[in-house]
C-alpha cells in the first residue's frame, strides 16, 4: 500500500478486494495441496499481469519468497528424516521425496498468501482505508496509525539521509559494504530518533488542536467508491467461504489430527 497507489482497479471498494483476498488465501491454505496452490498462483500471476499490477506485485513477492524457498529447501530438502522415499544421501544429508513435497506444499501455499496480500496492499490507498475505518466507526486512532506510517516513511528516510550528510560534513567517514552501513546506521540512530520524537511532540499538539481524538463521532471528507452489487458480492463471498470450510473440515475438524 503506497501513498500514491492508484484507485482500486475498476473502482472496486477496498473491502471487496479484501474479501476476495481472504477467500483465495483461506481456501488455498485449507486445501493445502501443492498442485492446487501452483494452479492458483499461475492464475493470479496472469490476472495481475493483465491488470498491470503484476509489474509491481510479482517482483516484490519474489524478493520475499526466494529467501523463504531457499530456507525451506535447506531445511526440508536436505534433512527430512521422516521421509521414506530416499532420492539421494551424502553424510547427514538425505534428500527425500516427502521432504521435497513438504517444502513445495509449504512454499507454494505461502506464495499464494504473499501474492494475494501484496496485490491487495498495492491496489489500496491509505486515505481510502482511513475513510472506510471512519465510516464503520473504528477508532480513528487505528486509521491514523495505518495511514501515518505510510506517509511519514519517506520523510523519515529523508531525515536519516540529511543526518548522515551532516555527519559526513563533520568528518565522519563510513566504509563501503555491510559493515560500513551498519556503522552508519548505528551513528544515525540516536539523532534520528531524537529528531523524530521531537517532531512527533509538535504533531501531537497540532492534531489535538484540530480536535483529533475527541469523543464525538467522526466523519470523512473522502468518499470511497462502493455499490450495492459489491456489497452483495462481499457477503456472498464470506458466506461461501464459511460453508466451504464447514464442508471441508467436517464437524470433527477441531479434534487433534482431524481430517487432513
Amino acid at each position: 500500500m503506497l501513498p500514491d497507489s492508484p484507485a482500486g482497479p475498476g473502482g472496486l471498494n477496498p473491502l471487496t478486494l479484501l474479501s476476495a483476498a481472504v477467500v483465495i488465501a483461506v481456501t488455498t491454505t485449507a486445501i493445502n495441496s501443492w498442485a492446487v496452490s501452483a494452479a492458483v498462483l499461475l492464475l493470479l500471476a496472469t490476472l495481475l499481469a493483465l491488470n498491470g499490477l503484476g509489474r509491481k506485485v510479482l517482483p516484490a513477492a519474489a524478493v520475499i519468497m526466494v529467501p523463504f524457498w531457499l530456507s525451506l529447501l535447506l531445511t526440508h530438502g536436505l534433512f527430512f528424516h521422516e521421509g521414506r522415499t530416499i532420492l539421494w544421501t551424502a553424510g547427514p544429508v538425505r534428500v527425500t521425496a516427502e521432504g521435497l513435497q513438504f517444502a513445495a506444499g509449504m512454499g507454494l501455499r505461502t506464495a499464494v498468501f504473499v501474492v494475494v496480500c501484496l496485490a491487495f496492499s498495492f491496489s489500496v490507498r491509505p486515505a481510502d482505508l482511513m475513510a472506510l475505518l471512519t465510516k464503520y466507526r473504528f477508532p480513528p486512532q487505528l486509521g491514523f496509525v495505518l495511514c501515518s506510517t505510510l506517509t511519514i516513511a519517506p520523510a523519515v528516510s529523508g531525515r536519516a539521509r540529511r543526518i548522515a550528510q551532516a555527519q559526513q560534513s563533520r568528518g565522519l567517514v563510513t566504509g563501503q559494504g555491510a559493515g560500513g552501513r551498519l556503522r552508519a546506521v548505528q551513528q544515525q540512530a540516536v539523532p534520528l530518533v531524537m529528531a523524530l520524537l521531537h517532531e512527533a511532540g509538535s504533531r501531537a499538539d497540532s492534531l489535538e488542536a484540530r480536535g483529533f481524538g475527541g469523543r464525538g463521532p467522526r466523519t470523512s471528507y473522502r468518499e470511497v467508491p462502493d455499490s450495492p452489487a459489491q456489497r452483495i458480492i462481499r457477503w456472498l463471498a464470506v458466506a461461501a467461504l464459511a460453508v466451504f470450510l464447514m464442508l471441508w473440515f467436517g464437524p470433527g475438524w477441531f479434534t487433534p489430527g482431524g481430517v487432513r
Binding site: P3, R125, P126, A127, M130, T134, P140, G143, F144, C147, S148, T151, I152, R203, S206, L207, R210, G211, F212, G213, G214, G216, P217, R218, T219, S220, Y221, R222
Partner: peptide, 19 residues
C-alpha cells in the same frame, strides 16, 4: 496531519474531527 491525501482533505481535517 499525515493522513490526508490531498490539500482539500487536510483542510477538512478539523471538520472531520468535529463530525
Amino acid at each position: 496531519s499525515t493522513v490526508a491525501a490531498t490539500v482539500a482533505e487536510e483542510i477538512a481535517f478539523a471538520l472531520e474531527n468535529a463530525g
